[in-house]
């Protein structure tokens, strides 16, 4: 299943947190023209480097599907960043 929600939490050095929730599907829909353009560029790159289009897009989809559950949490002193993909 592709990611549904990306949560970004940043703790600024002054102690005030910033939280951003990114719903992936709506954002992808809004950015769909860019996504289509990126897919075309990727397809051309695959043809230039003689890589199977089907395998390349299959692998890309696998990576997207495997992303949920990823969590990166970095703290340095009072500053902190947390990225969580669900």
């Amino acid at each position: 299943m592709m990611p549904q929600l990306v949560t970004v939490k940043m703790m600024r050095p002054n102690g005030r947190p910033i939280r951003i929730w990114v719903p992936v599907l709506p954002v992808l829909l809004v950015l769909s023209p860019l996504v289509v353009l990126a897919a075309v560029v990727a397809a051309v790159a695959c043809l230039v480097y003689r890589i199977s289009l089907l395998r390349a897009f299959g692998t890309g989809w696998r990576i997207m599907s495997a992303l949920p559950g990823t969590r990166v949490d970095v703290e340095h002193g009072r500053a902190a960043v947390l990225v969580s993909i669900r």
């Binding site: 495997a66 992303l67 949920p68 559950g69 969590r71 990166v72 949490d73 970095v74 703290e75």
Partner: peptide, 8 residues
């Protein structure tokens, strides 16, 4: 500093 990464 603390780094905590979880990768499926």
């Amino acid at each position: 500093s603390r780094v905590n990464i979880r990768v499926p």
